[in-house]
Nucleic acid binder design. Structure first.
Lengths: 190, 190
DNA sequence: GCATTTGCCTAAAGGGTTTAGGCAAATGCC
DNA sequence: GGCATTTGCCTAAACCCTTTAGGCAAATGC
């Protein structure tokens, strides 16, 4: 029989696409095998188990999102950078809801330490350089930004803002503006 | 054979407890049947299917959380109310991580409209009365509060702040303080 | 006390995960 | 090019979760 040319990378990418189509929690080895027109057991030559697939999709999404954010941040600073970061985040979640979900998968500490999650934290701190915060305020601010962005995007994806005015985009702009003001007030620069 | 005395309510409560113990996504009819020492098929006399169980647990958690928040808010206003709301939210999620997850389950519009989710929105708006915001700012603020609280709690539960200083509780206080300042500045009162 | 309803049962089918063992295609070596 | 080894996909089978169908016995109602 002809070989299908499976690799962990191809399976991961297909899994990410599947996640966007049917939801991250519906990504199964069975569905993936169907997509490649292959028997389920064949996937076990390339993946230890279904958990490894999920982890790989999560790492892939973190990487892809970090790349996008890095791109969006290039050459920007201050509020401009904050808004670019926020938009890159929100846009990714809207374009790739399944991958976004995957990026929120809880990873074990070692895996997380080796993931692009580290770059995310670095980029968040880079934005805060424009606001001149001393520790521990800077850490508090990193956590707050992460919370707001993640919280907003996840509520929006869950449909929480769907059937009410104003538009979710307007509230997003208001939130970003508010965070900018807040961070400027918290800064040590007079 | 003796009857086990199953009811939708008892199954829902046991499901909520199970969620806190093993995670909401691990709540299965099989596990629930084992807990009652009953065959799985017997549960179908009380629940349409496993989705109904999940929905019932979600509604139960929303109700329970709303009760707690209402309790915490009684007799408070302004920053005091904001902090009480925030703490009630965070404490519930830490005490009942599985139920908290359940409360985030996406409900269909009619179910959501009849759920305690409505009370949550009302209470959030009640807090904002202390800050005197005009529309559409008030709606933006409702969304921002929901985002921050949900985002922070979900990142904390996911272990995001675990292996770093300062303590997650300190950042929480900082965030609540920041939100208070922010809302006061956005208010129309001079 | 008897008929009806209700609650839990067995049985079975369908789908996802995972392991064991086999055959054929690809690869490497002379 | 021919042969041995490795690799990739296969079949088979076990286990778990969900859901439906049909049966019997306990509880309920008159």
């Amino acid at each position: 029989m002809a070989r299908a040319g499976l690799t962990p990378e191809r399976l991961t990418l297909a899994g990410a696409e599947l996640a966007d189509e049917v939801g991250f929690d519906q990504v199964t080895l069975s569905a993936l095998a169907r997509r490649f027109d292959v028997k389920v057991a064949s996937l076990y030559s390339h993946l230890k188990n279904s958990q490894e697939l999920r982890t790989r999709i999560a790492l892939f999404a973190l990487e892809e999102l970090a790349d996008r954010v890095a791109d969006a941040l290039a050459g920007r600073a201050g509020k401009d950078a904050l808004a670019a970061f926020a938009d890159a985040y929100r846009d990714y979640a809207r374009e790739h809801p399944g991958r976004y979900d995957a990026a929120r998968l809880r990873l074990d500490p070692e895996t997380a330490a080796a993931s692009a999650g580290v770059r995310h934290a670095q980029m968040t701190r880079a934005i805060l350089r424009g606001y001149d915060l001393a520790e521990p305020d800077q850490t508090h601010a990193v956590r707050m930004l992460g919370s707001v962005f993640h919280g907003y995007v996840s509520l929006e994806l869950a449909g929480g803002f769907e059937h009410s005015a104003p538009d979710a985009r307007e509230s997003w702009a208001w939130v970003v503006d508010s965070l900018d003001t807040l961070l400027r007030n918290r800064g040590t620069t007079p």
